[in-house]
Design a protein around this nucleic acid. Structure first.
Lengths: 156, 156
DNA sequence: GTCCATGCAAATGATTTGCAGTATC
DNA sequence: GATACTGCAAATCATTTGCATGGAC
């Protein structure tokens, strides 16, 4: 997943923010690991490879900024770390949320895209007078390697 | 929502754990606020009303214990506090998860019960070889008072 | 009486913040 | 050149832990 530097620069300028190497590098670090869910510390280590002078506080501040700009999404797997991944809004496209399967044994996190939730949202909106604009779903269980498909053959 | 003290005592003893006032009181504090999502600090304050000697560390340790015993559930709304609510496993009954509508304006949290997710779980199990055993859903939006039903009449 | 549970105070660890120097516009 | 951004170190704050005392069984 590549970052459109020009588009990001434009967005920053629009908001009266400055374009800095640190900001671009943090965003590109996250973009370079599309299937990971990086912690601030991990992003810090990644950026340090090409820009050793960066400070951890800058990473935290940048992450917060990019999140506010909707360029990245924040997620938590309740292991004590906030995690980040590329945002889902591309140009004018509609949101295409992906959710997470979390393996209770090995901790692996698998992302999946789903549209079934739209239906649920509609239902909620009608019944509760609640206008849903976003959702987050986590499914916990066991992945293939950890016995996900051995449901029937348990008991060994 | 009342706590069946005898049943809880039995459960604790079964596990070789001791029955203490603190443990019962923490559980009852949580049970006494079925529509709230209490933080450790809030539970601490509640229990202190009837048992002023209790320490915050005990509340944290007890919460952890009750969570492991599946008597309470942990949830996080990403505001920096872990929150707790009564567990959903009642006797031998099947789980009946409820999920959360979180208002982005007033912060109100509305719980709702849903079974549509079962369908989604089945789908995932088949396609990804993933055996889902639990799920967590958060819907973000605007509640009735904050304009949830004004979707059409927006503008101005 | 044994050993687990508690209360207090101190430790931990992710994240935030103050401030002086630095880079962007 | 003004002002926003950065790096460093110190501060914050929810949660955890060590240890001596107290309570359950």
């Amino acid at each position: 997943m590549a970052v459109d530097r020009e588009q990001v620069k434009r967005l920053l300028k629009e908001k009266g923010l400055k374009v800095t190497n640190q900001r671009l590098l943090v965003l590109e670090a996250i973009a370079s690991c599309p299937d990971e869910h990086l912690t601030a510390e991990e992003i810090f280590e990644l950026v340090k490879l090409s820009y050793p002078e960066i400070g951890l506080a800058t990473v935290y501040r940048t992450i917060q900024l990019l999140n506010e700009l909707k360029l990245i999404d924040k997620i938590s797997f309740d292991d004590g770390f906030a995690r980040y991944e590329m945002g889902n809004t591309r140009d004018g496209e509609q949101k295409h949320h992906h959710h997470h399967l979390i393996c209770l044994k090995c901790g692996r996190v698998i992302s999946f895209r789903d549209d079934l939730l739209e239906e649920l949202e509609q239902k909620i909106a009608c019944t509760a007078g609640f206008h849903v604009v976003d959702h987050e779903v986590k499914l916990y269980g066991y992945c293939e390697e950890c016995g996900g498909d051995l449901i029937e053959e348990k008991r060994e």
